[in-house]
Nucleic acid binder design. Sequence first.
DNA 1: ATCTATATTTCGAGG
DNA 2: CCTCGAAGTATAGAT
Lengths: 269, 269
Amino acid sequence: MIARCSVDYVGRLTAHLPPAVRLLMVKADGSVSVHADDRAYKPLNWMSPPCRIEEAPGVWRVVNRTGEELRITIEEILQDSSYDLGVDPGLVKDGVEAHLQELLAASPAVLGSGLTLVRREYPTAIGPVDLLCRWADTSADTGTVAVETTRLVEAVPAVGAVPAVGGVSAVGAAGPGEAGRSGRGEAPTAARHAAVEVKRVAGIDAVEQLTRYLELLGRDPLLAPVRGILAAQEIKHQARVLAQDRGIECVVVDYEALRGTKRDELTLF
Amino acid sequence: MIARCSVDYVGRLTAHLPPAVRLLMVKADGSVSVHADDRAYKPLNWMSPPCRIEEAPGVWRVVNRTGEELRITIEEILQDSSYDLGVDPGLVKDGVEAHLQELLAASPAVLGSGLTLVRREYPTAIGPVDLLCRWADTSADTGTVAVETTRLVEAVPAVGAVPAVGGVSAVGAAGPGEAGRSGRGEAPTAARHAAVEVKRVAGIDAVEQLTRYLELLGRDPLLAPVRGILAAQEIKHQARVLAQDRGIECVVVDYEALRGTKRDELTLF
DNA sequence: ATCTATATTTCGAGG
DNA sequence: CCTCGAAGTATAGAT
């Protein structure tokens, strides 16, 4: 329906739309959205299902269970039509995080030489880790395909904008920094693991997420030492800084190239 | 337009919609969205502006500057109408985080007795802190209005679902736990501050965010000791647990009541 | 029902 | 232009 209307929303916040001509869309599930003549994605205002429409002459009250209300006052109807679309077969996607995780699970050595998959979605008390890998003590690092790796070679923090944030073991007693370091110099441990967080775009939140997992896994004697690896198609600068500061490795993955590389060249020595 | 169509999107990912009847919305800015008969908010597929439509018989190609493409193959047109809505006067909002921050800045004592505002959006190397406050050493805690406060009275961690995550000073050497404690017992320090994170709904991410600020501010001798206060209209349980474990205070704020309370009763002694 | 993580997030502000 | 954080985020999946 095209109509001149004003809209009031009272719920999680209060919002008001002064009178103007807008498109009103009422769907089969009772949901309502109000659209202006720009922006493809976001409605000006809306009520998500499940909700109920109480239709009075000139006023629509759309309410949901939690007491939120969308009130549409219709001043003038300019167009009105309806059609039953039926159910939609739905969208088929390719290239999201799940797919990236799948590809990396098939070629874990891309993330670091000697890495082998233990399992995807490794369960922990605070949620599943995207990938848990085991690693051999390969001192020499071979080159990688379609991947640019950043490793914490020096122990120097070098936290540009954030001086000394993690300098005093701010990450945690048995945290990833410690775990990462313990792999070198001391007597080799039987278990060596790596927790991998996969993201399309990695922000600071991804580093925090991985840090929480590492705090937990690093204390498990059956797993320790546990390296942290952040693998993403894009890693934000702030995320990279924080990750390096915490001894977490960053790997930028080229999705297209990885998809081309079904087999892992690194294992074909 | 209501039409039987199939849709292909190639861009940040690849997606396909098999043939079905859907609503196609073309807006004045050239943006296009494809809707099914459910969900008020999200289109099945779309192309955001700025973009261009190349219309051929039976096929719409919608492309943008970055090379993303939405291809709509129209098999049958069932309804077609258009209307020029003109520009929309726009939405007026009330009750978002900025508003809450404003109100709390005006009445900081609501967050804890003796608190006074130093400044809003206090700048740090890792971003601005919502509110920075100074606090007097008021041992007696007066009741607050429209607020339910949870304080770390006992030093016991008691981290329900996440055993011992923060138990071994996982928060950081000079972190908030330490800072919070140093205000009691020892010789009083000249500077006493509180970093306040304001959220409408506070999740674990809010606690992490505040923790990062506290790691930084707690090491500043001009500010320390720095308490951490999480102020929100709603605090998720997990966030509350993590906050308490890290010595961060939680304050639930009633927006409506706070808006009514322009003046802060606590300062009227 | 609640919570967590993702999103072609979108959107806006600030550097 | 990019980066970062908020959103009535919405939405899907898991506990």
